[in-house]
Simulated scan of single mutants.
Amino acid sequence: MVSNQQPIASSNPTPKLAVWKFTSCDGCQLSLLDCEDELLSLAAQVDIAYFLEASSEVKEGPFDISLVEGSITTPADEERILEVRRQSRFLISIGACATAGGIQALRNFADVQEFTDVVYAHPEYIATLKESTPISGRVAVDFELQGCPINKHQLLEVISAFLHRRAPQVANHSVCIDCKLRGNVCIWVAHGTPCMGPVTHAGCGAICPSYNRACYACYGPKENPNTESLCHWWDEKLNVENTLIVENLRNFNPLASSFKVQSEDRQEDGSVNPPKHW
């Protein structure tokens, strides 16, 4: 969502852009680098002051726009995001990790100490938080751009919107709409394949369904998703195992509110809590 925007100060003719990495795989930062020709145009409009994925040159803040990739997973992350927020006029979280926790947030549903004991020979050296959270769980965010990784065209639109003081025009419909626009045969209707497309935010171009593979919600929930109804259909009509339903809900966006609520409603023993409404 967009918070109350303040005009970028006219006293700074070239707005400063910063790109920050927290706990993540760098894929969303690479999406910006993949802009290629568009990146050259962007560089002519802003001063890329901090972007370690692209350059070792570092300029001091404050920054007009900060793009933040990754979740808050370590004590160092927790401290640094406060400083980033303090130095940023607008803060935009990008990608599944930054907007919904990412796969590292799966720790929130289990015992993180048990994980570290199993994985590391010396877990006492590991500094980590009990829970991994999206950026909005720690500081105020001016806009969230979903995706794993993000869509570079959507990213350019968001940056352009903030530079020109307007609301970003990012589609909020489901992947199903993109399937129809591509002329795809619905794999759910035609083949009975459980697909997350009806509740998933558009942005990928319906890549997976175009190759007869079910959508697995890498772009997180669309606006006002009826995730409860989708789970009901998977369960009652497609005979999908409860474990698989929970896995799909907790894939890349486990802390997205609509996904999190439904995954927690489904018990580990395979039972399903009574629905609140349909």
Rank of each mutant, 00 (worst) to 15 (best):
L129Q: 14
A9H: 15
N184A: 08
D26C: 11
S229H: 08
E57H: 14
E228K: 12
Q87Y: 04
N172L: 12
L32G: 03
D77Y: 04
N184Q: 14
T200E: 12
E124K: 01
E223S: 13
G137T: 00
N172R: 15
V199P: 00
L30F: 06
V189R: 14
V185Y: 02
S3T: 05
M1H: 03
P194N: 08
F259H: 02
I245W: 04
H122G: 02
H173N: 13
A202I: 06
S10V: 08
Q262S: 09
D26M: 14
A49K: 09
A217S: 15
Q267P: 01
L145I: 14
L91S: 05
E53Y: 10
N4Y: 04
A96M: 05
I65C: 05
Q146W: 10
L39Q: 10
E241H: 15
G192N: 07
I245L: 10
N184D: 12
Q154C: 04
S263E: 00
E241T: 12
W188E: 12
C195P: 05
C35M: 15
I187Y: 02
R166I: 05
H164F: 12
Q104E: 08
T116P: 01
P15W: 08
V246I: 12
Q45I: 02
P7N: 05
Q29M: 06
D265W: 07
E223Q: 13
V112T: 15
L155A: 03
R86S: 06
L106H: 08
I94H: 03
E38P: 02
E124I: 00
H232T: 06
R85C: 02
Y216E: 07
A161P: 04
P274D: 09
P123Q: 06
G183M: 03
F22N: 07
A127L: 13
N108M: 06
F51P: 11
G61H: 04
W234K: 01
E60M: 10
P221N: 01
V19F: 10
K16C: 09
